[in-house]
C-alpha cells in the first residue's frame, strides 16, 4: 500500500470582507487523486498559485481537506488523534530558509523535532549527528544559522526533518529563494536521501529541470492535476507544459524545436548529453 494516498481531495477556503460577510469561496485544490509508494521520488510541478503548496500542506496535516480523504501511512489526516504521528511520518521543508530554523545553533535546531517528540537525550544526539551527516552539514554543527548560505540553511532544515525519522519528506519549493548553486546543493542532498536512506520524497517546485530525476511527476494547474507521468513522458509535451506556465529547460525546448523542423530525434530528451548524442547520430 502507498505511503501517501489521496482520493477526491479538495480544499476550499472562504474569503470574508471587512464586515465578516462572506465574499466567496476559492477552491485551492480540487478532485486530487494521488498515490505515492514508499521510496519513490515524486515531483509536483506548477506555476505560482496552481495549488501545489496547498496540496503539500495537506500531507503534513497543516491543512485538513474540506472534501475527500488523504491517508499518510494508512492514517486519515482528518482524524484528530493521529496528528502528531502524521507529522512525524511526513516531515515538511518550507520555502523560506530563514523562517523555519528555530534554533540559534545548527545542532540545536536539528534537535528541535526529536525534543518535541519526547526522544531521550542520548538518542537525540545520535539522530542529530546522523541527520547532519546525511545532508553534509556535520562540520557546521555549532555554527549560527544566520551565517550560513541559503543552500546550507535549507540543508539544515532538511536535517531537522530527517532527525524525526520520517518515512516521507515533503519539500515545498525548497529552492525558490536560492541562487543556482544553492539549488544544486539542496537537490543533491534530497536525491541522496531518497537513494541512500530510502526516504520517500515529494518535491514541489516550478523549475522543470529539478524534476528530471523524479520517478513520477504531477503537473498542477488551477488546483487540479492536469498531467501525470514519468519525466520522459511529460517532457515530450512541450506545448502543454508551456501552456501551464512552466519553465521548460532550454535543452528540451531546443529538442522540441528541432523535431518540429523535421529532424529525426527521439522523444522526451531530458539532458544535454542525450540531445548531443541524438544530434550526432542524425548528422
Amino acid at each position: 500500500m502507498g505511503i501517501i494516498r489521496a482520493r477526491k481531495l479538495g480544499y476550499e477556503y472562504h474569503r470574508y470582507d471587512e464586515n465578516g460577510q462572506e465574499e466567496g469561496a476559492t477552491r485551492a485544490i480540487d478532485d486530487i487523486d494521488l498515490d505515492v509508494r514508499a521510496g519513490q521520488f515524486v515531483a509536483v510541478l506548477g506555476h505560482n498559485g496552481s495549488g501545489k503548496s496547498t496540496l503539500a500542506k495537506h500531507i503534513n496535516a497543516l491543512l485538513i481537506p474540506t472534501e475527500g480523504t488523504l491517508w499518510v501511512d494508512g492514517m486519515d489526516t482528518s482524524a484528530e488523534g493521529e496528528l502528531w504521528r502524521i507529522r512525524q511520518r511526513a516531515g515538511m521543508v518550507f520555502q523560506n530558509p530563514d523562517n523555519q530554523i528555530i534554533g540559534t545553533v545548527v545542532e540545536e535546531d536539528v534537535g528541535f523535532g526529536p525534543e518535541n517528540m519526547g526522544v531521550p537525550t542520548e538518542d537525540i544526539w545520535k539522530r542529530v549527528e546522523e541527520s547532519l551527516q546525511a545532508v553534509g552539514m556535520a562540520a557546521y554543527r555549532s555554527h549560527s544559522p544566520n551565517k550560513l548560505s541559503g543552500g546550507q540553511k535549507q540543508r539544515v532544515a532538511i536535517a531537522g526533518v530527517m532527525a524525526m525519522r520520517p518515512q516521507c519528506i515533503v519539500l515545498d519549493e525548497p529552492t525558490a529563494m536560492l541562487d543556482p548553486n544553492g539549488r544544486r546543493e539542496v537537490l543533491r542532498a534530497v536525491r541522496e536521501l531518497n537513494r541512500r536512506e530510502n526516504v520517500t520524497v515529494i518535491l514541489i517546485t516550478h523549475y522543470m529541470e529539478e524534476v528530471v530525476s523524479a520517478d513520477r511527476v504531477y503537473v498542477m494547474d488551477q488546483g487540479r492535476i492536469v498531467m501525470e507521468g514519468t519525466p520522459r513522458e511529460l517532457f515530450t509535451r512541450v506545448e502543454d507544459l508551456k501552456s501551464y506556465g512552466l519553465d521548460v529547460p532550454q535543452v528540451t525546448l531546443l529538442a522540441h524545436g528541432l523535431k518540429k523542423a523535421g529532424l529525426v530525434i527521439p522523444e522526451g530528451i531530458l539532458t544535454r548529453e542525450e540531445l548531443v548524442d541524438a544530434l550526432c547520430r542524425s548528422s
Binding site: 543556482p180 544535454r272 548529453e273 544530434l279 550526432c280
Partner: peptide
Amino acid sequence: LAAPQITYVMHDLRDRGV
C-alpha cells in the same frame, strides 16, 4: 556561474565534430 544551457550544447556538438 554557468553559461546558458544552449552554450554547452553547442560546445559539446562542436567537440563531437559538428
